[in-house]
């Protein structure tokens, strides 16, 4: 279950891949929406960690257009609900994540991304 909360923290870790290695692009995605308890405090606490542009872009790629281009200054409940949905309720269960820089493909199967590197890709 790759949720966007985790995807937003994930960069490519292959050898010498240090720039333009985020966000990993989703491919051939099978999406599942799974309800999660809304915890406004947690969503709020997570806000400073988010790379906003990457989150909006990825959410839209997955068909969710509920987030504004810019992170709003006023954080109201409606916004937190949308953000909660995007971060915790969209689950990618099949497909792959591809590094925008080195093009390494991290396959996702049964909700688990395979982050293993080949010998020559290890730093």
């Amino acid at each position: 279950m790759v949720r966007l909360v985790t995807h937003n923290l994930l960069a490519c870790h292959a050898k010498d891949c240090n720039t333009n290695n985020f966000p990993l692009g989703f491919q051939n995605v099978q999406l599942e929406i799974r309800e999660a308890e809304f915890n406004p405090d947690f969503v709020r606490a997570f806000l400073p960690k988010i790379e906003w542009n990457a989150l909006v872009k990825t959410a839209r790629e997955l068909g969710d257009t509920s987030l504004p281009d810019e992170q709003p200054e006023m954080v109201d409940d409606d916004f937190l609900q949308n953000l909660h949905h995007v971060l915790f309720e969209l689950h990618v269960i099949e497909g792959a994540m591809v590094c925008p820089n080195c093009k390494h493909v991290y396959p996702i199967s049964d909700g688990i991304p395979n982050m293993l590197l080949a010998e020559h890709e290890i730093a």
Partner: peptide
């Protein structure tokens, strides 16, 4: 939790301060 198949000896790819 979200689960990842990963060898920690190859290093982690999470952004700073995650």
């Amino acid at each position: 939790g979200d689960l990842f198949l990963q060898d920690i000896g190859q290093g982690l790819g999470f952004r700073p301060g995650s």
